[in-house]
Simulated scan of single mutants.
Amino acid sequence: MSLISLTWIFCAQIFLHYSLEISAEVPALIVFGDSSVDAGNNNNLSTIAKSNFEPYGRDFQGGRPTGRFSNGRIPTDFISETFGLKPVVPAYLDSAYSIKDFATGVCFASAGSGYDNATSNVLSVIPLWKQLEYFKEYQAKLRAYLGKSKANTVLHEALYVMSLGTNDFLENYYTIPGRSSQFTIEEYQNFLVGISEHFIRSLYILGARKLDLTGVPPMGCLPLERATNIMAGSSCREEYNRISRDFNGKLQVLIEKLNRTLPRMRIAYGNAYETVLQVVQRPLSYGFENAGAGCCATGMFEMGYMCNQRNPFTCTDATKYVFWDAFHPTEKMNKIIADHIVNNNLMVF
């Protein structure tokens, strides 16, 4: 084959790759939520809900802690990569990034946050309403960077991800006396769903048309909850799992309602519950050896500052563990969650 032919094939491949990139149906990934998807916004806050220190991030590119509550990447990083975007979604408050980086993806999530403002107040993190204000600020920057028409196209075609709710129950309702004295658990679930609806309608007014609303995981199977369930042999706490299922069911009803009533809006339900439960129940089938404790420290109680490089009990191979700390999945588990949501819920986009 001649040098001219090889050159032509090489140029054609570059052109094809470039054409696929610019014609992507999802030009950006925009993320709201809690520690399940926080890419490091909390690094800039005065809060104990941080993970920008070792051993967090030890399996991230370069082995550096980024503020992600995992040993590596989180689900939204994998989702972004699957849609042909960047392999990591940058945190909006990270000064290392600019609007050029945010044009194809940005994270407004904050570890410790929830639907309920009272949840965010517990650890002094970014409440959902503030995440929306940051998004409005981002829109203005994007229009200045891309021009109004192109920016509006990106904002309409972008995939929006919401992942939160666990903290509202475990960090707030069942820990702080305020909400539990105001609401029954079902009333509180309805209260949270109402906030979710208001937030989604606000996103819709601001241009969002594609949304993944991810439900809560089986909260009773988190290592922290299993460790305190001593009387039942440290098995999953069925009460919390039932609450997860009930709440997720209410979110699905909300999704059906909004898909009917918001013109050209398409909302998909991200089913993290079933994915995590299946892996916890059959860890060996997914290549895991431990589903009851986290890799970091003893894996039963530690997260955040209690999960640090001085703890001698941290495991050497996180790929054998479903959970990284007592609350958050490992990078390997995060990829399984992301792959399941993409293949079963997000292919409509």
Results as ranks from 00 to 15, higher is better:
49 A>D: 02
49 A>T: 13
49 A>C: 14
50 K>Q: 15
50 K>T: 15
50 K>M: 15
51 S>D: 10
52 N>F: 15
52 N>H: 14
53 F>M: 11
55 P>H: 14
56 Y>C: 11
57 G>K: 08
58 R>Y: 15
59 D>A: 10
59 D>T: 06
60 F>S: 14
60 F>W: 12
60 F>K: 08
61 Q>N: 01
61 Q>L: 05
61 Q>F: 10
61 Q>H: 00
62 G>C: 06
62 G>M: 02
64 R>E: 10
65 P>M: 15
66 T>I: 09
66 T>P: 07
67 G>D: 12
68 R>C: 08
68 R>S: 08
69 F>D: 06
70 S>A: 14
71 N>P: 05
71 N>R: 11
72 G>M: 06
74 I>E: 03
76 T>R: 02
76 T>D: 10
76 T>Q: 14
76 T>W: 05
77 D>E: 04
78 F>R: 01
78 F>V: 03
79 I>C: 07
80 S>H: 09
80 S>I: 11
81 E>H: 07
81 E>M: 03
81 E>W: 11
81 E>S: 06
82 T>S: 10
82 T>V: 05
84 G>L: 00
84 G>C: 01
84 G>V: 00
85 L>F: 01
85 L>Y: 00
86 K>G: 00
87 P>V: 00
87 P>C: 02
87 P>H: 01
87 P>R: 02
89 V>C: 08
90 P>S: 10
90 P>V: 09
90 P>H: 03
91 A>Q: 13
93 L>A: 09
95 S>D: 01
96 A>I: 02
97 Y>Q: 03
100 K>C: 00
100 K>H: 01
101 D>R: 00
101 D>V: 02
102 F>H: 11
102 F>Y: 12
102 F>T: 03
103 A>I: 01
103 A>P: 05
104 T>E: 10
105 G>R: 07
105 G>D: 03
105 G>S: 07
106 V>S: 12
106 V>K: 09
107 C>F: 12
109 A>N: 11
110 S>N: 11
110 S>M: 09
111 A>I: 09
